[in-house]
Design a protein around this nucleic acid. Structure first.
Lengths: 114, 114
DNA sequence: CCCGTATGTCGATAACCATCGAACGTCGAA
DNA sequence: TTCGACGTTCGATGGTTATCGACATACGGG
């Protein structure tokens, strides 16, 4: 870095009271992000690179990072740091309490109906 | 029209077996379209102009026509012709049978959480 | 303290989408 | 048959989004 100032790269997670349906629908409307969410639900929690592979997304790391950001800022993903990795997981309880049935519906829909 | 060929303007309605979650989520992700669906559920069936007014959408007729098309092609709306009007209604049964709980969730979500 | 792995950020580009006005088609009524 | 109301289609425009490569940052291990 040129300047001596550190860039923190802090992860922004909206509080549960800030979750909005329109944001969540917009985040889930992308096929790649929908696949990411569904894969994450199967695998439990997972680091970024692993999740991208498991979801079968053939996109660059920077693009996946962008999608992860959209899902996180919509309140769908939780990101925590473990060493050099970012561990992703679903905010199941928050989503269920605010929009009951939404996540279950998305996860239980057969692959063919996606 | 310049040519003598008639333009039919037929309404395309996908059969229930063609409905796809990603299409439906994408259609509902737009705030104006979401408002349209929620208003239509309250009012029952309604012609275009009336629905646009009831939903409070301050957009041109051509733009509303575009949104109506997106909702129709996603399988959310049914359009039937009555004289010079197009009467819009929700495909409740089709949506419920294919994606149980989705429409209810969208309709029951409080305005403040949209 | 250098290195490899993991990931975020930036700037650019292309694709997509919402929006509009203008022109057109269709219908019912005058 | 002329008119007005209703709605669609078209072409253009602007804004948003998906995508990438290059670079920067962070961590743990040698």
């Amino acid at each position: 870095m040129i300047e001596g100032v550190s860039v923190l790269m802090e992860q922004v997670h909206p509080p549960v009271t800030d979750l909005r349906l329109s944001k969540i629908l917009a985040a889930l409307a992308d096929p790649g992000r929908l696949a990411t969410v569904r894969t994450l639900a199967q695998k439990g929690e997972s680091p970024c690179t692993r999740l991208q592979q498991d979801a079968g997304l053939q996109i660059s790391r920077s693009t996946f990072s962008h999608h992860q950001k959209v899902l996180r800022e919509a309140g769908i993903l939780l990101v925590r740091v473990r060493g050099a990795e970012r561990i992703l997981s679903l905010r199941r309880d928050d989503l269920d309490s605010r929009f009951p049935g939404l996540l279950d519906l998305v996860l239980n829909t057969p692959e063919k109906l996606i």
